[in-house]
Amino acid sequence: MKADIEAKAATLAIRLPDAGEAERADIMAWVAQNPVHAVAFARAESAWKDSERLKALGFDLPADEDSADEVIVPVETGKGISRRTVVLSSVAAIALAGLLPAIRMLGPGPESFSTQLGEVREVRLADGSVLHINTDSEVQVTFSKDRRLLRLVRGEASFDVAHDTARPFDVEAGDTVTRAVGTRFTIRRREDDVELTVTEGIVSVRDGTGQEARVAAGHGAQITPGAIAAAALDPQTIARRTAWQDRMLEFDGLTIGEAVAEFNRYRPLPIVVADPSIASLRVGGRFGVAESDKFLGALQAGFGLKVIERADGKVEILSKQ
């Protein structure tokens, strides 16, 4: 019964965009009949609409799916069956890969997770906590009976902490220790300081000198030896600081210099902005972490700037004269 309504709602939701006046009215009449229809239709339509945003993310199916002639091979043939087996076994391999850290996590020694330049990685830990590790970063994980200790050796990571009162979750970044029980926060280790952003719950942070502060959701802190500067963050700042977890970069009034520095974290060869009058221009936008080319294209089109590739392979942004 409920299943029938869901199936009907799915069919109507995909017909609606192409429907003529009369069919549209019929669909709306079905929706209006009762709340069960309406909720099912809204669920179907939102599944349909949300999938549109995948395009912007550059979502793609695995390469083996690209060729149309393979797709029409009937499943009964040997080829079809073997292809299906291949797909299944790769799914199994992914599932297994996901389990491996969990199993090894039971051992006493630290487990190290790192990312290469340009890579963003998600790791699920044995306790259910999830790490997002940003480009060129390393996290070491040691779980014991009474403590979950993580060391941010370099770079940036976000911690989605599973609730466990008996085992506090400590993240060390140099001398800075951030302790959580069940929250979500991001830590970026920079040359001179550590940047903390809390998106859920509350953490306590301690710097190298033993000074401590509590930082709650919606707040961030800049930690240097001897000083913890905490402040409320506006939603845009939080969005900007956490967008990398979706492999996105968000600029909202950043200068070109700052935006370029963000992209450079993911590039083997940096973009160079030597001219300070260009570097100080403010930009807004949302790009994939690997889309610095698109960003450069937008700068050329929107700001009248010139982008050249230098002899050393680096890309430089210049003014057009």
């Binding site: 599973a162 609730h163 859920e200 509350i202 502060a213 930082v215 919606g218 913890i228």
Partner: peptide
Amino acid sequence: ETILGPRTAGTADARATDESGHR
């Protein structure tokens, strides 16, 4: 959607941040 830890109201959290230190 997993609830990670208990969530007291936002106001209570905000108050807690203001009292720095002394955890």
